[in-house]
Simulated assay, not measured.
Amino acid sequence: MWIWFALLSAVFAALTSILAKIGIENVDSNLATAIRTAVVLVMAWGIVFLTGKQHGISDIAPRSWLFLVLSGLATGASWLFYYRALQLGEASKVAPIDKLSVVLTMVLAFVILHETVTVKGILGGALIAVGTLILIL
Rank of each mutant, 00 (worst) to 15 (best):
M106D: 10
R36Q: 13
V40F: 05
T75G: 12
S92N: 14
K21D: 03
I22H: 06
L41D: 03
L66T: 15
I47R: 04
G89P: 11
L73V: 02
L88H: 08
H55F: 12
T37I: 14
A95F: 00
L31D: 08
L108D: 11
D98R: 10
S101Q: 14
S101P: 03
W45C: 14
A32H: 08
T51N: 11
A91Y: 05
I24K: 03
L86E: 01
L68K: 10
N30T: 10
A20R: 09
Y83D: 08
Y83M: 15
G46T: 03
Q54E: 13
T37F: 14
L108R: 08
L100S: 10
V102C: 05
N26Y: 13
F110L: 14
F81K: 01
V27Y: 05
I47M: 04
A109I: 04
A61R: 14
I47C: 06
T105P: 10
S71P: 10
W65M: 05
F110C: 13
I57V: 00
A85F: 11
F81P: 04
V48D: 00
S64C: 13
D59L: 14
A32T: 07
D98E: 11
Y82I: 00
K53V: 08
L86G: 01
A32L: 06
K93W: 05
A77L: 06
A38Y: 08
Y82F: 01
K53M: 10
E25S: 15
L50M: 02
A95G: 01
S29F: 15
S29Q: 14
T105S: 15
L88K: 09
L41F: 09
F81C: 05
W45D: 12
D59Y: 10
I18D: 05
R36I: 13
W45M: 15
A32Q: 06
I22S: 13
I18V: 09
I18A: 09
V27E: 03
P96K: 01
V40M: 07
A74Y: 09
E90A: 08
V94T: 06
S71Y: 08
V39S: 09
T33R: 00
V42F: 11
M106I: 15
H55M: 11
W79Q: 07
G46M: 04
W65T: 05
S92K: 04
I60K: 05
S101T: 09
S29E: 13
S29C: 14
G56Q: 08
A20W: 08
L88C: 06
W45H: 12
A32G: 12
V39L: 11
V111Q: 06
I47E: 02
V40P: 03
I97M: 06
L88W: 10
I57K: 04
W79F: 13
I24P: 02
D98G: 09
L70R: 02
P62Q: 04
V69E: 13
L50G: 04
L88R: 11
T33E: 01
I60D: 06
A91E: 02
I35L: 07
D59S: 15
L104Q: 04
